[in-house]
Write a protein that binds this DNA or RNA. Structure first.
Lengths: 278, 278
DNA sequence: GTCTTTTATTTATCATGATAAATAACACCC
DNA sequence: GGGTGTTATTTATCATGATAAATAAAAGAC
């Protein structure tokens, strides 16, 4: 499209850096290293693995970009084993969906299944501080927005409410899988468009569900909490899909006759654009 | 434990390579590049980004390790934008759980929620070839295993049955989230231990559920398929957790009095060890 | 025309060394 | 003791160039 494409012919042979990366991972597993433990120095790796400085550094950089290691300069510096962070993982996972952005429907299919289960599983695990945090987040959208910017902030905070709940899950797998759809909602272009429009109903309903949810959680009513979240997700899906359909319809109506432009803009609507970090 | 630990003090400043990686990503987004499109040559990046060869190469390697780009040597070679593969994503996701392996319970909490929904959503989407594939996989465990090795193979094939189903999901998010728990089951040490023991009941029940599931899918009975899978997951969870408890109990019984050894072995049991690729 | 060989192009790796930046540990001053 | 400056250590980056490996395209053989 934009540039001459290359036929995908290759049988990508294993590169030295990949082999070295694997070797380091094996070393970690074999030595039973834990996060924080030190890895051999650069020059030591050069000797034992018989590779040049450049190759070793490329291998280490690859591991670092995956979040597996961290390096520090200075005395007693060097390479250290790290625990991959949640943020890094979400970022890497996002890459997969860069060219296959899920639809709103796709996302809510997951949320509908997982989040009710999530709240049931954290029932009884929330302390006063947790409830306080949740209420603090809710405070951001307890009254109608006064500007378009606040509109957007409120939507983000509504999603943050769910992210806070996730933090209390004892199941790391469940936590990650609940976080990711939320991450997508915060970054998908189409969602940002939807969120950028006033939508009082969304706020109202959300607030109501969340209040009821907090009540159930305080009463240690796991099944009640599950049911409320299920309803909440169902309703949110409905609202969001309606809005999505409106956006697409509206777009198709005003779209230029040229297929080219139309498809390009449509693709933009369907794209995933994470906000810049740091 | 194994080596002197370092206190985690750092505020890891942004590195040049990271900045360059971001710059390249931005370039991709801004130019609207698609998978297969060519990225600028190494020497061109050196000039425009004003960095040395080593730095540029480290940045490209980081992107490559994330699966975002591929490089090819030779004329018309260079760096090309890639679509991150499913395999690569599962691998990167696995890293997160390297030091936080989920329990069997954790995994089945996800499977119970998602897989029934998955089969409901693929009902009506399977063609003859699909059914053929599923039956071919089932054939591997239609009769009792004759060796411990076959025992293991059969368990892997049972999981593969689910992986095949996943392939027909129209929801990429659902697909990824169903795949990952299966990947974990195939690689968690504790699962491998469980799978290494004879367990005729598992095979029997699994076969039964899967036959009924196929029947429902052929009849385009989405809700029936959903219900069968829900039952299947519930039963499998029960069986697996029972086995896990047995393993742990057995282990605690024969465990040496030394806390040290015991915890080390116990950790091993709880560890995640992916099998080597390629 | 089809197969084989050569050639040109481009990344991959090796090699080496210099300078910059970060920072823990030490020495010093008050 | 408590703050301050110095030093040593280690990675980060830059610079440069040579050789190796892969491979598409061109040239040549039959």
């Amino acid at each position: 499209m934009t540039q001459p494409q290359q036929p995908v012919t290759n049988t990508p042979r294993r590169k030295r850096t990949d082999v070295i990366g694997e070797a380091i991972k094996d070393y970690i597993a074999q030595q039973g290293l834990r996060p924080g433990d030190r890895l051999p120095h650069e020059h030591h790796l050069i000797e034992t693995l018989d590779a040049s400085k450049g190759t070793i550094r490329e291998a280490l950089r690859a591991l670092e970009s995956q979040g597996l290691i961290q390096t520090r300069t200075g005395p007693q510096g060097g390479t250290f084993l790290a625990e991959v962070s949640t943020e890094r993982t979400l970022e890497l996972l996002s890459n997969y969906f860069f060219f296959r952005p899920p639809t709103i429907h796709d996302i809510y299919e997951i949320r509908k299944q997982l989040e009710p289960s999530l709240v049931a599983s954290i029932t009884g695990l929330l302390d006063d501080a947790a409830f306080q945090r949740l209420e603090n987040v809710m405070a951001f959208y307890s009254s109608p927005p006064t500007s378009l910017e606040e509109e957007r902030t409120q939507r983000m905070k509504e999603l943050e409410f769910h992210l806070v709940l996730v933090e209390y899950s004892p199941n790391p797998l469940m936590a990650m899988m609940c976080r990711f759809p939320l991450e997508l909602l915060m970054n998908l272009t189409v969602c940002q468009r939807i969120y950028d429009q006033p939508y009082p109903e969304l706020r109202h309903k959300g607030l109501d569900y969340q209040s009821r949810l907090l009540h159930a959680l305080r009463e240690w009513d796991a099944e009640g909490a599950r049911a409320i979240m299920a309803e909440h997700m169902q309703a949110a899906q409905q609202l969001m899909e309606t809005r999505e359909a409106m956006l697409v319809r509206e777009f198709l109506k005003v779209g230029k006759p040229s297929d080219q432009d139309q498809s390009a803009e449509y693709l933009a609507l369907r794209s995933y654009r994470p906000t810049e970090k740091r």
